[in-house]
Design a protein around this nucleic acid. Structure first.
Length: 297
DNA sequence: CTTCGGAAGT
DNA sequence: TACTTCCGAA
């Protein structure tokens, strides 16, 4: 575990940095200026909710725009399209949230009573880890994803300049606004606009989700990466690479269903149906999924 | 159509 | 590095 103070310092420097670059043409119009103190808290993982409270409203407005006419087949694309147009402001917020609380390594801060952390614990080692991650271990006997226990390079920093390199630090996490695919999916899963519709949890507790509309999700991903030709085939390959990295598992037998091997503790679960179901319980291991969605009355 | 990895490209 | 693109096979 790293000490939060360090992190805060990191971003604090960042902030300063941004201010300094205020007039720099290269810098994307970051909106960090306004809330100097509150976000320091988020960095420490203390006020994450705040971030969401701020950004969700903006998303809502976008919804209303596309919530005009629904066709069976058209719907997906139409909605997806409108979603594609509302990225800028809110997406930025989302991404900042991730850079602050989620981006840290996956396997670094596993706190749950894991059975066999093995690979994930050291294979995915990332830069930092301050937010709590909930490790979801499948009962799978670590099938085939054991990396050759070769001593992974401790991944040192590029010792380029011994002098204060505030300008470089934050770029490590994400340049401007680049979420990794897994982060992007988590975002989607927390977005009312797409969550039950295109992607949804089939078992949030286990980190299992389904790409209800693979095409739409891929399209969204493509937009995010500025890859207009993105499709599920391609995105799926990226997803498959996650198996090896211990970030995702495939839920065999169920089409378009995957599982996160670990989730951030402050994840906001949007579960379909009503709040009467038990979605925060911790004792089922048999999930006989009966996905009969789309049947709205 | 989905899923799977290898191989090469960015 | 983290995908993206293409592909033959299941």
């Amino acid at each position: 575990m790293l000490q939060q103070s360090e992190l805060i310092f990191d971003f604090a420097s960042d902030h300063v940095n941004i201010s300094q670059l205020g007039g720099h043409p290269d810098y994307p119009a970051v909106i960090v200026e306004q809330v100097p103190h509150p976000h320091l808290l988020s960095y420490a993982g203390l006020a994450c909710e705040h971030v969401f409270c701020v950004l969700l409203p903006s998303l809502c407005s976008a919804v209303e725009l596309c919530e005009s006419g629904e066709e069976e087949t058209m719907e997906t694309l139409v909605a997806a399209d409108s979603l594609l147009n509302m990225d800028c402001s809110d997406t930025l917020s989302l991404e900042q949230h991730y850079s602050q609380t989620f981006l840290p390594s996956l396997g670094d801060v596993i706190t749950a009573p894991v059975t066999q952390v093995t690979v994930s614990a050291e294979g995915i080692v990332g830069p930092v880890g301050q937010s709590q991650w909930h490790s979801l271990h499948t009962e799978k006997p670590a099938a085939q994803l054991q990396s050759k226990k070769r001593g992974r390079k401790p991944r040192h920093r590029r010792a380029e300049s011994p002098t204060p390199d505030i300008t470089v630090k934050k770029d490590k996490y994400n340049k401007g606004n680049t979420l990794y695919l897994w982060q992007f999916l988590m975002e989607l899963l927390q977005d009312r606009q797409v969550c039950p519709r295109y992607i949804k949890w089939t078992n949030p507790h286990a980190g299992i989700f389904k790409l209800v509309n693979s095409k739409a999700v891929a399209k969204l991903w493509g937009k995010h990466k500025n890859k207009p030709d993105m499709n599920y085939e391609t995105m799926g390959r990226a997803l498959r690479y996650y198996y090896q990295r211990g970030i995702l598992n495939k839920v065999e037998g169920q089409r378009l269903v995957y599982q996160f091997t670990s989730l951030p503790k402050d994840m906001i679960y949007i579960t379909d149906g009503d709040g009467t179901k038990e979605e925060d319980d911790d004792d089922h291991d048999d999930n006989s999924c009966n996905d009969e969605d789309n049947s709205r009355f």
